[in-house]
Design a protein around this nucleic acid. Structure first.
Lengths: 245, 245
DNA sequence: CGGTGGATTGAGGTAGATCAACATGCGTGG
DNA sequence: CCACGCATGTTGATCTACCTCAATCCACCG
């Protein structure tokens, strides 16, 4: 039953995914509300599990898109680069997220593991066949795609219209919210990405990211735990600094 | 048969949509490759056509998302604003594009017609029912959603990492490509949006948009036809200035 | 013909980039 | 277990692309 973790993504909502995946131990799983037992079995028959080491590439822009993936453990970052090397990170993916859906047969982004990670891999044709046979799952996937589009819209606002402080505040809040409730207060929020990667996500430079985080620390809004984690000390203030709502 | 125009969106690919919609007269239509005759009939039974005047709001952020729409004529812009009024335009939609798919029941963006326009409106529940009964159409929609995500990714790169000249060059090329082949050389490219809207799409200010377009004109890369259209004089140079590829 | 909203143009200011040291932490091998 | 060395991160000084503010300009329209 351990391989059931690959189906976390099909739980009814992103919130549920976070709850079920993170509150349960690694070997347990919750009932997937969008899949019945037969569907689960069929889907698992199509899946192969794949472990990723830190910094492994899942695929690169230009690669043929033979598979789609579902992230079950760890963090993966999606990015796209210009020919001269400037890079934009499109998002940091967490367990439950799908990776590699493309409109045509070629990947248009790079996908790289930021931590050790595990993905569940499906052959595209087989996966499409499964969706054709299980339209309710296809609808659920369409809903997840709408969620990704919503996330992209928030990122576009961040990149197009927010100040450096607002960008960092938004980034931290978003990561915290998507990481589930576990990090609230008690544990610090893990930042497995480098400052350079935060810079490429927020459209800033490394130096500005560093200075801005230090400013937030000096203002006692956050606390920096080593270089790879933060603790949010003042939720409300961070929210206000984020510019949204 | 005139109402068939509402089904253009279901032609096999974005490219085909452009070809079939724009090369045929207003009253004609092409066979929709993703829909058979029965499907077309059923879908049309769910649709109501809706004319929009220039500047009409289709919906605003916060509205309940009762419908999804398919744009059949004209141009619509999607945007999202921060509480203090800063606005980010997420995209300019053309015929064939779907509008208003949301992960939950609330619209998260504003949708406004930039020209006189026509949309085809579907009740969400009914549309979902149709997709459940026609999984091949659901898959086609999933493919279109991937295309939207790809477009969003390009926009994120533009906003996060490109200079003003690159942003404007990219914007013009993208609009021209999506508008189909008709504009190449012969006709100028219509810009029904204001400079302010171009600014809110590119993450710049009105003044920078104006200055940058003027610079492109001075360099003889484009020609400004009045204030609402441009002619691309030098494709290759504009492409090089766009920073991509 | 006057007025109004969009577009242009100019002058000056600034947030964030860039360039350049310097610090720190961390994995590695002794 | 500690010292070393290199990655990554921080800090400071300066620069600049784009923003801001302030006039016009212009086209369209009653």
């Amino acid at each position: 039953m351990a391989s059931m973790t690959s189906l976390h993504a099909f739980c009814a909502s992103r919130g549920d995914v976070a709850k079920s995946c993170r509150n349960c131990g690694a070997r347990e799983f919750n009932v997937c509300q969008a899949l019945d037992a037969v569907q689960q079995e069929k889907l698992l028959a199509l899946a192969s599990r794949l472990p990723l080491a830190k910094r492994d590439r899942l695929f690169s822009a230009g690669d043929p898109a033979r598979y789609v993936y579902n992230l079950t453990e760890g963090m993966v970052c999606l990015s796209r680069s210009l020919p001269d090397g400037r890079r934009q990170i499109l998002g940091f993916l967490l367990p439950g997220d799908f990776i590699g859906f493309e409109a045509d047969d070629i990947h248009r982004r790079d996908a790289e593991a930021l931590t050790e990670a595990k993905v569940c891999r499906f052959e595209r044709a087989a996966f499409d066949g499964f969706l054709r046979d299980n339209p309710d799952v296809a609808l659920r996937l369409l809903q997840m795609a709408s969620g990704d589009l919503e996330q992209a819209a928030r990122h576009e606002v961040l990149l197009g219209r927010k100040t450096a402080v607002e960008r960092l505040a938004t980034f931290l809040l978003d990561l915290r919210d998507r990481s589930g409730a576990r990090h609230l207060r008690t544990h610090p929020l893990a930042l497995p990405m480098t400052r350079g990667e935060i810079a490429d996500y927020t459209g800033l430079t490394i130096e500005t990211v560093s200075r801005t985080l230090r400013r937030l620390k000096a203002d006692e809004v956050i606390e920096l735990v080593g270089t790879g984690a933060v603790r949010v000390l003042d939720d409300d203030r961070l929210e206000r600094l984020s510019g949204s709502t």
